[in-house]
Amino acid sequence: MTDINKTLHTLNCTVREYPATLQRLLLCASADDSLLLIENGVYNLTDATALAAISRSQLKLYCLNADLLARGLSNMPMDSATVVDENGFVELACSHQKVISWFV
């Protein structure tokens, strides 16, 4: 899974609280880039509007397992995102050309 010309975007906040952050990310991201939800960003998996916007932008969606577990979200249906652990995070970072952090 080498996406050497692609960018990995990481998002650490909810779109409900910070809609402009996802807006910026989606403006700058190219189709087939990847998006990893971390920290409070994993709550976006419960936000149909946010998921639809991400899907329209043709981003591959991932989320960090520890942040799901910590927030009691690990049992929710995960049809739109691939769950990764810390090693998966490192693999994603290494297999993309660069990482852009969209943090608040």
């Binding site: 010309n5 960018t7 403006l27 700058c28 991201a29 190219s30 660069k98 852009i100």
Partner: peptide, 8 residues
Amino acid sequence: LQEIVRKA
């Protein structure tokens, strides 16, 4: 804009 981001 997306091209500029990709190329950086």
